[in-house]
Design a protein around this nucleic acid. Structure first.
Length: 423
RNA sequence: GGAGAGAUGGCAGAGCGGUCGAUUGCGGCAGUCUUGAAAACUGUUGACUGUAAUAGGUCCGGGGGUUCGAAUCCCUCUCUCUCCGCCA
């Protein structure tokens, strides 16, 4: 959520930035400013009336103590008109605050100045790439055939038990998942991230704080009976660890990592984009999150990008890093780097991580603040990234490393898996 | 699921209609003493909003009500604890 002060200080700049994000309802900015001005006027009249009641009530208390009943009674009558004023302005205030909130919540985060202009994924900017794309033999096949060949995952079984998009991993497939999760967590913990195992369901407040609600309501599984949401990413429960807190400056940066399954409805997806592990409703992911001082967040963003990059290097996968254009960015993000790995049999790039700086967008919703060196409390910045999402990593590992003898695992993973190959 | 008790500032814990944004202790910060530290003593120490700065307003788990006035009374929700039941 943007701070109203940001809109008020520079409305034209805010509108220009929203334009970069391809946001349509630019007029909301002026509406919000107007609503806030109205709010102030009403608030002032409410507070003046309330102040009158407060002083009069104290006066009545004194009169009663002195036994001056008559005077107390007259004073009581005078309060009645003030009370009416309070009642009407309270009602007005409540309705205008709701309007204001509803409007403010619709505004996405402003894109940072480095964000390229553009509307579609084609306009994302390739920052750099690494690794080498393998040249596969002629009989190389896509990962969904390999999953079947080596009995690593069973989609039909998932269909029977739950529905499409819920693969059942079996044998070495299940073990590969476990090895990857363990490898990623160790890698993150070694880099100073504190490990969490969060709840896999969250309440409405938490989903709101990180920006899933109200924007992405349809993307989450909703347990209506208990008013809980299945998490689409560990970002949601883990970032909320610091909801409604005031941190000391020496506690920063907060570095957290967590494994969790992720549940996504992916409404409207179909076709070959979703074949195999390309897009599923439940998948495993390890996430990294940082909460930092505002002036440090862009340096930390680079650090997190480098961290994810070194993870991909250790998996020996060909990758590229994209800086997302305004139109392709998420609602809450100020800047996002996507990581894609090359799936050599499908001959396409697959997104495996997304590292974002949210600046104050989430922390303003969460009220996650810190006391700076001057003793002033101010909002922190939050950042997160995947490190990494498993299914597409598995897809690439299988496709890129397939040989006639079996799937060769990268060296870094071998101690975790216990073998050099899947056969 | 049943019965009872409770939710107050970083923590502990008073307050049970006006003098309470809140006694006190611990912790934190500053000072005195000391070569330094500890101890002791003294002072200070919540958040939000608002103002040029004052002032003013709001917050005692959340929401609603009674009253001129609510941390205190009533209703309701959530959560915690104790006992019973069920259970990995």
């Amino acid at each position: 959520m943007l701070q109203i002060s940001v809109l008020k200080n520079n409305p034209e700049w805010v509108k220009q930035r929203l334009g970069v994000k391809n946001f349509k309802q630019i007029n909301l900015v002026d509406e919000i400013i107007k609503l806030d001005d109205e709010r102030k006027t009403i608030q002032l009249s409410y507070e003046t009336a309330q102040a009158g009641i407060n002083t009069a009530s104290k006066e009545i208390g004194k009169l009663m103590a002195q036994g001056k009943k008559e005077e107390a009674e007259t004073a009581k009558k005078q309060v009645a008109t003030l009370k009416e004023q309070v009642t009407t302005s309270t009602e007005k205030l409540a309705s205008i605050e709701k309007l204001l909130h509803d409007a403010l919540v619709q505004l996405p985060n402003l894109p940072a100045k480095e964000v390229p202009i553009g509307k579609t994924p084609e306009e994302n900017e390739i920052v750099r790439s690494g690794g080498t794309i393998p040249s596969l033999s002629e009989n190389a096949v896509e990962h969904w055939f390999l999953l079947e060949k080596y009995k690593l995952a069973n989609f039909e079984l998932g269909n029977k038990i739950t529905g499409s998009g819920f693969p059942v991993y079996t044998g070495n497939g299940a073990k590969l998942q476990r090895s990857l999760v363990q490898f990623f967590l160790d890698f993150n913990v070694n880099a100073g991230y504190h490990e969490y195992l969060p709840p896999f369901m969250v309440n409405e407040q938490s989903a709101f704080a990180t920006g899933q609600l109200p924007d992405k309501e349809g993307q989450m599984y909703h347990v209506t009976e208990d008013k809980l949401y299945l998490i689409p990413t560990a970002e949601v429960p883990v970032t909320n660890v610091y909801r409604d807190t005031i941190l000391k400056e020496e506690e920063l940066p907060v570095k957290m990592t967590a494994y969790s399954p992720c549940f996504r409805r992916e409404a409207g997806s179909y076709g070959k984009d979703v074949r195999g592990l390309n897009r599923v409703h439940q998948f495993e992911k390890v996430e990294i999150i940082q909460i930092v001082q505002p002036e440090k967040s862009y340096a930390v963003l680079e650090e997190m990008v480098a961290h994810v990059e070194s993870l991909l290097n250790s998996l020996e996968l060909p990758y590229r890093i994209l800086r997302l254009c305004g139109g392709d960015m998420g609602f809450a993000s100020a800047i996002t780097y996507d990581f894609e790995v090359y799936s050599a049999a499908q001959k396409r790039w697959l997104e495996v991580s997304s590292v974002s700086n949210f600046e104050q967008f989430q922390t303003n919703r969460m009220k996650c603040r810190y006391k700076d060196s001057t003793g002033k409390t101010q909002l922190t910045h939050s950042l997160n990234g995947s490190s990494l999402a498993l299914p597409r990593i598995v897809a690439c590992l299988l496709e890129n490393n397939q040989t006639d003898q079996g799937i060769v695992l990268p060296k870094a993973l071998q101690p975790y898996f216990g073998k050099e190959m899947i056969q």
